Amino acid sequence: MTAPSTHLRLPLRFDVARMQQEIARFAATDWLAHFNTGAYENGWSVLPLRSAGGDARHIMSLDDVAYADTPHLAHCPYLRQVIASFDCEVGAARLMALDAGAVIREHRDPGTALADGVTRIHIPIRTSQQVLFRIDGETVHFSAGHAWYMDASCRHAVENRGTAPRVHLVIDCVTNDWLEHLFASAGFVPKPPPKYGDASINDGNVQHIIASLRATGEPSVLAQAERLAAIYHAVAA
């Protein structure tokens, strides 16, 4: 059985030299230190090209706020073309730089897999063979100019062992038929649905959850407990 795709090179390629020329226009003061300082060492910064409300000084996701181009993107005609080549709704788009010697510690970003409705795409602009992702224990290098998918809901970490900063264009795409067809053409293997219908429930905690639900005595909750119990016993049989 083929394993689900935790990462995938998509059949899209972009002009690295043109992208490098455009990002060279930005000053050091245009970049924002990543707010999650506990997640990395030695320098991780962001330059928003599309953000909530189009604010060039804002890098966090916000509910009920439309995404829009920031003023930075107006200076990048080729990067606008790259983003527009994705025939789907685009939420956040940003340049993400990882300094030489920097490390992003292992973590998960829930809700960023193709099946979740928001698909995160990386396009390396400046990189080297010393820039390595570790995704569910597998080490991968994302080559420059290609579009790469990474299921960021998996355990992943990044390190830049090179001597120069790494810069990726990172785009959050809203999953649609065009994107699903693109992934299928690249050989994407989807993850199976969660066994218990909820990714937070697994064989290690399901019996405790069943007992807790039964303890409530509520008919609707008891029905949920029995559904989980039936799945558990069917698998164990």
Rank of each mutant, 00 (worst) to 15 (best):
M1L: 09
T2G: 01
T2M: 12
T2H: 09
S5D: 12
T6W: 04
L8T: 05
R9S: 08
P11F: 08
L12G: 10
V16G: 00
R18V: 01
M19W: 05
M19R: 07
Q20G: 00
R25M: 10
A27E: 13
A27N: 12
A28H: 01
A28I: 03
T29I: 08
T29F: 06
T29M: 04
D30R: 06
D30C: 08
H34D: 15
H34L: 09
F35Y: 15
F35M: 07
G38Y: 13
N42D: 15
W44T: 03
W44K: 02
L49I: 07
S51V: 03
S51M: 06
S51I: 08
A52N: 02
G54L: 11
A56K: 12
I59A: 11
S61Y: 15
S61D: 12
D63R: 10
D64L: 10
D64T: 08
D64N: 13
V65D: 03
V65F: 07
A66H: 12
A68D: 12
T70P: 04
P71R: 11
L73V: 08
H75V: 02
C76F: 06
P77E: 13
Y78K: 06
V82Y: 12
V82H: 12
A84G: 05
M96Y: 01
A97E: 13
R105V: 02
R105L: 10
P110E: 03
P110I: 02
L114W: 08
A115N: 03
G117M: 06
V118C: 12
V118W: 09
T119V: 08
I125L: 13
R126D: 01
V131M: 12
L132H: 05
I135Q: 11
G137N: 13
E138N: 00
T139I: 15
T139E: 15
H141I: 14
S143F: 07
S143Q: 06
G145N: 04
G145H: 09
H146L: 02
A147Q: 08
A147I: 03
M150R: 06
D151S: 00
D151N: 15
C154Q: 13
H156G: 02
E159C: 01
R161V: 01
R161G: 09
G162Q: 03
P165H: 12
R166Y: 04
R166L: 05
V167M: 10
H168S: 10
I171L: 12
I171T: 08
I171H: 04
V174R: 14
N176V: 06
W178A: 11
L179H: 01
L182K: 01
L182M: 10
A184Y: 05
G187C: 05
V189P: 00
V189S: 04
P190H: 11
P192K: 10
P194I: 11
P194M: 13
K195W: 03
Y196H: 00
G197Y: 06
G197I: 05
D198G: 01
S200F: 07
S200M: 05
S200A: 15
N202G: 13
V206K: 13
Q207T: 10
I210H: 07
I210V: 11
S212V: 09
P219Q: 07
P219M: 07
S220D: 07
V221D: 03
L222Q: 14
L222Y: 03
A223P: 05
A223W: 07
Q224K: 12
A225S: 13
R227C: 05
A229R: 15
A229E: 14
I231A: 00
Y232T: 01
Y232D: 00
H233R: 14
A234M: 08
V235R: 13
A236M: 15
A236K: 11
A236R: 12
